[in-house]
Amino acid sequence: MLVLPAVLAVAFLVVPLVALVAGTPWEDFWDRLRTEAVRDALALSAITSLATVGLCVLIGTPLSWVLARVVFPGRALVRALVVVPLVLPPVVAGVALVAALGRTGLIGSWLDESFGYRIPYTTAAVIIAHTFVALPFYVLAVEGVLRSNGARWDDVAATLGAGRWTTFRRVTLPLALPGLIAGCALAWARSLGEFGATITFAGNYPGTTQTLPSLIYSELQGDVEVARTISMVLLLASVLVLAGLRDRWLRVP
């Protein structure tokens, strides 16, 4: 009774991927990746996704620690707010970013008037859009591991004379390292594939804001073969992330 729908579900998930692999023009795979547009997009995707991971670590780690360790009024609300981008349609995220940081936006207009600095349609905008959607993935992964490691190690460190910062650096962080790495992988994967928020907030300009997904979108109306080749690259990247996280996700209890 349940087997047939289950088989259908697997086919539903697998067939498109197999079709993509089969439809990839393997004979001139490398040549297509060497065109200037693809190289630019590759470089931009690499830079922006790594910058996104860096930003997530920088601001996401302290946030995770606060959520996991510090009891304060409204903690549940803060956690809920942090998770919103997880379920928000990416395009809406883009629109929201425009509303906040766009030329006439809440903060954007002030930036423009005071410093003459405009964020939208720059590489910085790409990184901001990516961080906006990737941060929740990172925070959830790191907060989870901080929570499961518990505060008891903090107690041990305190009885041995360690202050909060030393404890964080010497004990909490090293113990949370697996979670940190998983969080980075998730954030990187999310950033690499980000399209909706990016194209809404940063546009699709070759060299400055055209990442791999944006290029796929453009090439679908131009050279479908190129689109498939790049899609294949992103599929491989996803498989790599999955392989890296296999202990976390693929272990059957």
């Binding site: 041990v156 305190a158 009885t159």
Partner: peptide, 9 residues
Amino acid sequence: RVRDRRIGL
């Protein structure tokens, strides 16, 4: 504070 008490726990 805990860390300022000379304890061995």
